Simulated scan of single mutants.
Amino acid sequence: MILLGTLVNAAAIIVGALLGRLLSRIPDSIRQTVMQGIGLAVILLGIKMSLGTENFLLMIVSVVLGAIIGELIGIEKGLNRLGQWLERKLGGNKQGSVATGFVTATLVYCIGAMGVLGAMDSGLRDNHDILYTKALIDGFSAIIFSSTLGIGVLFSAVPVFVYQGLIALLSTQIYNVVSQTTLDAMLVELTAVGGLMIIAIGINILEIRKINVANMLPALVIAALGVPIVGWLSKLFL
């Protein structure tokens, strides 16, 4: 079953978020310190990912163009509106808690190599080991996120399922389009650009500065498509 790994991942987030709500009465001082620790860990993860780039210029161009496209489309506003709609439906008494938890968790769970690689492995080889590992990590982090950011974290399971499910389904045809070498290079740059966004998420968690990370999401597509384009231009002019 191609979508089994994705289903397990989404279910782990839901279970983790529900367990996290049982810990919602943790003192504010402890929750604040825990979130600061998570923010620092997220930044470190992002740095590690971004340092893997083999084309620094492509990474910069991808982020700049992606941010422009994302701002014009208004991705961040759309996610926030969806979170606020969930807030109203649930009758939340803390303004923006559902929206904040939903947006933050969605970005953390969707941006990164494990989701892409795991979903592709599910589609190409019907192997779900990577997504099972991601499910374990996401489930535990959902406990922490939900206990500090609120029940909005639970709803991030929906975009995770859609995002990874589509990749799994589309990957069954990917080798008809690109070679293994090109695919590996695309994943390297996609991971590097995703790392920059992970750093931005960490900065948001630490409340150092508000960065519209969601508006940078198109950069992932640009980075992936930029690899074969750069290769073609290199052959053309060199």
Rank of each mutant, 00 (worst) to 15 (best):
S97D: 14
A67V: 03
N80Y: 09
G92W: 03
L65K: 07
M59T: 14
K77R: 14
E87H: 14
V64M: 14
L79N: 05
V63K: 00
I60N: 09
S62T: 11
S62Y: 12
G101I: 02
L72S: 13
L72D: 09
I60E: 09
V98K: 06
A67M: 13
F102V: 01
G78T: 12
S62E: 08
G91P: 09
S62I: 12
Q84A: 13
E76L: 05
G101Q: 04
L79P: 01
G101W: 00
T104N: 02
K94H: 12
G91A: 08
T100V: 03
G83I: 00
G91K: 12
W85K: 11
Q95A: 14
G83S: 04
T100R: 01
L86G: 13
N93A: 04
G78C: 07
Q84D: 12
G101K: 00
K94Y: 07
G92E: 13
W85F: 13
R81Q: 11
V61A: 15
K77D: 15
I73N: 03
N80G: 04
K77N: 15
I75N: 06
I69W: 02
A99Y: 00
L82G: 10
G96Q: 03
N93L: 07
G70T: 04
G91D: 12
K94R: 12
S97K: 10
L82N: 03
V61S: 14
R81I: 06
Q95N: 11
N80E: 12
Q84K: 11
I68D: 00
L79G: 08
Q95L: 10
K77G: 15
I73Q: 05
G70C: 07
G66M: 01
K94V: 15
K77L: 11
T100D: 04
I60W: 13
T100E: 04
G78F: 11
W85N: 02
G74F: 06
G70K: 05
M59A: 13
G91C: 12
N93S: 11
G78V: 05
V103Y: 01
I68G: 01
T100F: 01
V98H: 06
L90Y: 11
M59I: 07
A67T: 14
S97L: 04
M59E: 09
L65F: 15
L72Q: 14
A99L: 00
G74P: 08
R88N: 14
V63E: 00
E87D: 14
K89R: 14
E76V: 02
N80W: 05
L65P: 07
I69P: 03
G78K: 10
K89H: 09
S97F: 01
M59V: 15
G74I: 06
G92H: 05
K77C: 04
R81Y: 08
T104M: 05
K77A: 10
G101C: 03
R81K: 13
G78S: 14
E71I: 08
S62C: 10
L86N: 10
E87V: 08
G74A: 10
I60T: 13
G70Q: 04
G91T: 09
V98A: 06
A105M: 06
G96C: 09
G74Y: 05
I68R: 02
L65A: 15
G74W: 06
E87P: 08
V64I: 15
F102S: 01
A99T: 03
T106L: 03
